[in-house]
Design a protein around this nucleic acid. Sequence first.
DNA 1: GTGAAAGCGCTAACAA
DNA 2: TTGTTAGCGCTTTCAC
Lengths: 342, 342
Amino acid sequence: MATMREVARRAGVSPASVSRHMSGGKVGGAARIDAAIKELNYRPNQLARGLRSGRHSCVGVIVPDITNPLFAELVDGIESVFAADNIRVLLANSKEDPVREAALVADLASRTDGLILIPPIETDPVLDQRALVGVPVVLVDRVLNTGANVDSVVVDNRHGAQLAAKHLISLGHTEIAVISGPLSSFPGRERHEAFLQTLSDFGQPARPEHVRLSDFSAKGGNKSMASLLDEQIPPTAVFCANNLMTIGALRLLKDRGVVIPDEVSIVGFDDLDLSELLNPPLTVINRATFTLGSSAADLLRARLATPDREQHHLTLPVELVVRGSTTKPARKPLKHLNRNSE
Amino acid sequence: MATMREVARRAGVSPASVSRHMSGGKVGGAARIDAAIKELNYRPNQLARGLRSGRHSCVGVIVPDITNPLFAELVDGIESVFAADNIRVLLANSKEDPVREAALVADLASRTDGLILIPPIETDPVLDQRALVGVPVVLVDRVLNTGANVDSVVVDNRHGAQLAAKHLISLGHTEIAVISGPLSSFPGRERHEAFLQTLSDFGQPARPEHVRLSDFSAKGGNKSMASLLDEQIPPTAVFCANNLMTIGALRLLKDRGVVIPDEVSIVGFDDLDLSELLNPPLTVINRATFTLGSSAADLLRARLATPDREQHHLTLPVELVVRGSTTKPARKPLKHLNRNSE
DNA sequence: GTGAAAGCGCTAACAA
DNA sequence: TTGTTAGCGCTTTCAC
């Protein structure tokens, strides 16, 4: 790789002039410098440039699972914002492991100008440590009031759960179940509490045996749905608190030959990729995932520009998208669904 | 941020000792150094470290579309391999734009130790330029024999197309259509040619009006399928040469109320995320996408270790996964599908 | 406007 | 083993 010195010598100017020219300054031998750059195929060493200027021109993004389409879209939103500034995205995968995440945070903190974190499901203590001193952080799907340089973006989980509950109640369901995520996670807790609260508010508190605490995974959704169907009184409607659990639940229903929505109505939280191709298409609580990402990026960008600005916590709206997976309940609770007790 | 000097002073040793200690060397005051590191919350400046050692500890990955689950899984494979070496992944999105890709390549080339490129659909001249002199590159889904430091991984596109064709023929279809990707792309060309060739080899060359050249997009697949149905003799089976076009085609069939597989059999190339939840589940040519990514990463890793090793070009296998979207053709070509001519 | 010179934080020779 | 020294390639004062 050619260095700036070589370019300077070839163009008959000083390295300083080349540097000035490259950062948009006015210099004399501009044409000759450009020529030299081209001839030598010169590209500035970002390491040196960064070391000198104190900027990495790079932000870190840690997701729990790259292959979750939700996170992919989030990353898309983030990347799009920073691409405009010529700031790159360092993407890392915590694989839902808090320990791994902690290591990644530590590593990325010294390679980037700031971090956008989508925390894994289990609570991790990283952020409370001094690991992040001085590194701007934006949290997605989680809020944290400690640390002056930690902003956050979440969606209105409570409202989403409320919409789901109201929708099912308004259809006339009385046997409504919920497959919740872990209460240790912010979205898990919020959706769980708000859903149950809403049912109570409408005078239809959920039966304890219709409440499942799961883990936001497809497998978890699958098992939870199985055990719900095996209840004495199976639910006529189920709210699945995230996309993966919804997928798991749908798989189980398909395996058991349960007809949606005739036998069981389903509302998911977060849209599925091919949602509208499913049979029936899925009723979901939807959020603007790309916007969630771009908002996080905007927050980080703003803090990069103004490190000592006050904390910002954004809450983005959600909406109910009614499609084919919800309908009125059948006359009575469908006892026959309980295959095991036949 | 604390620097190594400060750590050294606090631990009562020289910076060199701290450096040695941090890279696993044996030193005396290890305990005191560790203590100082902790107290000062020291983290080495990767910029300085990289500048000095000449390594970025970072590879660049450019994908055409992050939100395509295929690429997400690919990135997962890549990230997993490099994570083991503590090498990070800089992810950029070319958004299918060759010009944008060229700019990204130039930028990433000066920020990373090597690049993994998934070229956009349209052919781009970037790689033939001197832009990449000295930067190791691994191409996915495309081969290029120029440039000694350019390796590649592809899947056996021809064999995949062949499997699809044979499958449909063996079911008894005689009116077989294909929605191909652009012939300017390697996978587009390979799949297209092999599919048509196989039909011919079995004495059933495709009708010209049953061949569509599209663009690997959902919209393209949608339009192509629409025009196929509008043909005088609509096909009884269609091969969609990639995942997005398959999605588009499925949408159209659903919109028009065409029953799969009774009225039209569908084979896709590359599995869809919720493929098995679709009704019917989709018959596809599948490849090990994660492995595709990890193989690309392995190639890059190997070249990073041995820059002057010879070029390697891998071809990974594909398989036919028969699910519910293909069956025997109805007695005759289904004229009634042609809604427009009714 | 231009060049000389210092130095960002680290690592790798070299000496001790 | 340890410390001293030089310098990776760039930007940015500072004089001119």
